[in-house]
Amino acid sequence: MSGEPVLDIRGLSVDYGLGDAAVHAVRDVSLTLHRGEVLGLAGESGSGKSTLAYGMLRLLPPPGVVRSGQVFYHPGDDEPVELMSLSAKRLRRFRWAEVAIVFQGAMNSLNPVHTVATQLTDVIAAHEPRTTPAARRARAVELLTLVGINADRLGSFPHQLSGGMRQRVMIAMALALEPRVVVMDEPTTALDVVMQRQILAKLVELRERIGFSVLFITHDLSLLVEFSDRIAIMYGGRIVEDAPAGQLYRDSLHPYSDGLLHSFPALRGPRRELTGIPGSPPDLRAMPSGCAFHPRCPKAFDPCAERTPTLLAPDGREDQNRTVACWLHTADRAMT
């Protein structure tokens, strides 16, 4: 599934606050989302997953600031667009039409005082002002049908819908302008397991039918193993491992990925021991020196506390299309 890139993040750093008091929430992250791919982004709370997603779309509320880095969007036939340098007007036109987001917390993503119809059509009106109200409404009906909601729900207000329905409305809304990329920020966290399944199955089906790329952000690695093509693991604001989902599940290299994978039971396959990860996530205001994970790492050795490992192809597996930031696997080149 490694087609050409559609979204290319290069060296993105995001701070909260300015100057010396700033907290570095995302540190020098590079990540590529390919055409038609589901890229999973996993990590503990506070690892910077959501900040990365909002940062790359310039949606961070103050005091969040993108300190450095570039984000290239490849529209396919046209020249790539760099999002950080886009003017306010062009950015507004770019948003939702090219990259749409399904937000964390379905409950609060819909405006409580407007009907579903209003919220589905206003985005179409903003981007395609020449459509008639009737056409927009027809499109809204179509979108709701797509996610399995009856058209008579158009006149409903958000509080009249169940949590699962609201999230499906949000997915329908995300697809309104047929974007190439859909960012899903913990889209199913607030829902029960059955509803999670339904929504994700719907999503997989829609992606096959429409063909958009997905950046799927969650703390639930078990979901990603099942639904994504690639998985990137974040820790302390950095990507520590980036690998195809199957490889990561069977043969994770970074001790942190390994810890995450041993934090949930597998339903099929051989029994594994559940271990979890000792300690707690790092304090972003006082990050450990070197590799941020070393105080909790069972395999930490000499260089870990002193120098930060870079994200590189692991030793002896250069052909496997994966990278890891760990001294255990990249010692030879990174040390020199």
């Binding site: 950015l91 507004r92 939702w96 749409a100 987001i101 917390g105 993503s109 903003a126 981007h127 809304m173």
Partner: peptide, 15 residues
């Protein structure tokens, strides 16, 4: 302004 639906509205590219 801190509500999620405001961020959504911005992300939707509304004026």
């Amino acid at each position: 302004a801190a509500e999620d639906y405001i961020t959504v509205a911005h992300a939707k590219g509304l004026s």
